[in-house]
Amino acid sequence: MKALNKTLTGEKVEIVEIRGGRGLVTKLLNMGFYPGVIVEVISNCGYGPLIIAKDGMRLGLGFGMAQKIFVK
């Protein structure tokens, strides 16, 4: 298990856990990002925000958020 910001561009990972404030977790859940979902990392330069994809949807996540999403 690792934080999302430690992934590489092009990697496909499964969400394991989302930490953080309740509001933000709820928001991500309802957008379809919950444990068990596979996402693809579209671009992650290591620091700064990153883009993940689920099906046709592209989601931009700030660094702070990416640190709180754990994947495998």
Binding site: L24, L59, G60, L61, G62, G64, M65
Partner: peptide, 12 residues
């Protein structure tokens, strides 16, 4: 307080 982290959909 800390700034809330960004979550934003990027439309095609």
């Amino acid at each position: 307080k800390e700034v809330a982290p960004l979550i934003m959909e990027l439309p095609p």
